[in-house]
Design a protein around this nucleic acid. Structure first.
Length: 524
RNA sequence: GAUUCUGUGGACUAGCGGUCUAGGUCACGAUCCUUUCACGGUCGAAAUCGCGGGUUCGAAUCCCGCCAGAAUCACCA
């Protein structure tokens, strides 16, 4: 077989490019046709993956609300499980009682549900501490782990210089005794360390900490435990024993892979196919708890659901749909390139989803009065959507008083004709602190401006417009803009959470509580 | 400083040795549609695939060197 292939390829290679083309045209013309490649937003194939056998997991620490970075991880994990008819586990990595807070277990689940993610199994790492202790004991007995009582700065120094400390040489029996005391009694300042390699180039392998003492009440376990596993230990162990086949983590953990696999090796338990992808970053927007938290503490933003923030609650409040987040995330994929995306990409995804299903209304920001003495009295029925009649319509009664945008009027001079959109044409007669106009017929003039308007029966509405939080490194003090304006009367009936399009203004999510109505600007 | 990873149009991404005269999305320009500066359609401009070598009949794709950027160097995850 191989010799035949070789003969054929060399024969083909001897032909000139044109001859090759002609020959191909003769025997298989369909191969020459170009098909438009369509990109679907499905993820690439997973290595070592079999249908029905893939298990993924999303392991948040219950220490805050979820943001779009979490969403990326959760969506990738969830989508891969679905793609392979596998299982998706939600695991709360609550191994640090100082960080874990009861409220966030449920809050994070709410965020995930909103995203449209469903999990097949849910558990807390803190429920498995006994198992971790057993495995730790096994490591000590195997002489692969030891109890260290040196102080932090000395440990650090030894790591830096590649030196071993005396604790490393304590015999197994004594190590087990101290380990027992760590767990049961009040011995202080001891940690369990992996016997790695203190001279390893990869500093993550210089005897990393596996367990440490934290005397703090755990939101779920109370004071049952005082020795807690570190991420290096619990992450590897949990992935292995819970049956996860394809765990994902962000790139900054890459140097820990060696430790991850070494631990599982020593413990003699199954090793998953660990994979990494780049952390999501968005221009002018902080995407990490570390950066978001100080903004809230300083009062630079109003809370975790501030519309300038990429928290799921912030995005929801702003009017971004979960489907848009999913599309956005899958567009980025799981590449390892460090990149910074514009928020505009999420906006574009959202706009396409929202546009066909949102009602159009008139909203006039920075209004100026327009009086048209000879305006015909009108009861005008106007569709809520230019293409989809199913979205219904409303009837607006008009008389001779209107409000229009100052900005629009500034662009026009006395004598100009413009159109009140969906109504009639107006000729400008006078411009002062109000505009005087004259009815100028119903007939459509193609090149005249079509302008949104309200009658004197309007609803006062402020709209909050989010801008980027950072310009370069600098906090943008004007990141939250408030616009005051008049909305047409029927806007008063819109219920909370509905997203509408104010024509020529943009998409806005409405909040309407106890007749107090406000808008949050989604995007253009 | 050490180690690891990454490097495709303005931004993001596809690409896994010939189907790449490098595809898609966003942004941009033009045009059609349109009683919205929205959506949609069509067209366009925009990439010497970080740089330099090598392997090969053939390289964005494999190898080597260099350069640049990022991450890690915690008893946080």
């Amino acid at each position: 077989m191989i010799p035949i292939i070789n003969t054929v390829t060399s024969e083909v290679n001897e032909l000139s490019l044109d001859n090759q083309k002609n020959e191909l045209e003769r025997i298989a013309p369909e191969l020459l046709k170009k098909e438009k490649k369509e990109r679907d937003f499905s993820l690439p194939e997973l290595p070592h993956a079999k249908k029905g056998k893939v298990v993924t997991r999303f392991p948040p620490e219950p220490n805050g609300y979820l943001h779009i970075g979490h969403a990326k991880a959760a969506i990738v994990d969830y989508e891969y499980a679905k793609m392979y008819d596998g299982r998706f586990i939600l695991r709360f990595d609550d191994t640090n009682p100082e960080n874990a807070h009861l409220e966030f277990y449920d809050a994070q689940k709410d965020d995930l549900i909103w995203l449209g993610i469903e999990w097949d199994e849910e558990y807390n790492t803190s429920d498995n501490i006994e198992k971790h202790y057993k495995l730790a004991e096994q490591l000590i007995k195997q002489e692969h782990a030891y109890v260290c009582t040196c102080d932090t700065s000395f440990i650090k120094e030894c790591r830096f210089n590649g030196k071993e400390c005396d604790c490393r040489c304590i015999d197994t029996g004594e190590s087990l005794d101290i380990w027992g005391e760590m767990i049961s009694s009040s011995i202080e300042g001891a940690i369990l360390r992996l016997k790695g390699d203190m001279t390893c180039d990869n500093t993550a392998m210089r005897d990393p900490t596996l367990f440490r003492i934290i005397e703090k009440e755990h939101p779920l376990q109370g004071d049952k435990y005082r020795v807690w596993p570190t991420y290096d230990f619990s992450g590897a162990v949990e992935d292995s024993i819970s049956g996860v086949t394809h765990p994902f983590r962000t790139k900054e953990y890459e140097l820990r892979d060696e430790c991850y696999f070494k631990l599982l090796d020593l413990l003699g338990i199954r090793k998953p196919h660990l994979m990494e992808f780049a952390r999501l970053s968005i221009e002018g927007m902080p995407v990490s708890k570390r950066k978001i938290k100080p903004l809230i503490e300083r009062g630079d933003v109003l809370g975790y659901d501030d519309i300038r923030l990429p928290t799921l609650r912030g995005l929801k409040k702003r009017g971004i749909l979960p489907q848009a987040i999913k599309k956005f995330v899958l567009e980025q994929g799981i590449s390892k390139v460090e990149s910074s995306v514009t928020f505009g990409l999420l906006e574009a995804a959202n706009r396409k989803i929202i546009d066909p299903i949102t009602k159009r209304y008139f909203y006039v920001s920075d209004p100026i009065k327009l009086v048209i003495d000879n305006a015909p009295q009108n009861e005008k029925k106007i569709d809520f959507h230019p293409r989809d009649k199913k979205l219904g319509n409303r009837t607006i009664k008009t008389d001779k008083t209107f409000y229009v945008e100052k900005l629009d009027m500034n662009k026009l001079k006395v004598g100009d004709i413009f159109r009140l959109k969906d109504l009639f044409n107006v000729k400008i007669k006078k411009k002062n602190d109000q505009i005087t106009g004259e009815y100028a017929g119903e007939e459509l003039i193609s090149d005249s401006a079509k302008i949104q308007w309200t009658t004197d029966k309007y609803v006062n509405l402020s709209v909050f417009i989010p801008h980027v939080l950072y310009i370069g490194e600098k906090f943008n003090k004007d990141s939250l803009e408030k616009v005051e304006g008049f909305a047409e009367e029927s806007v008063g009936n819109i219920k909370t959470d509905e997203i509408v399009q104010f024509e020529r203004f943009g998409f806005v999510r409405i909040e309407n509580v106890n007749n107090k109505i406000k808008g949050f600007f989604t995007h253009k």
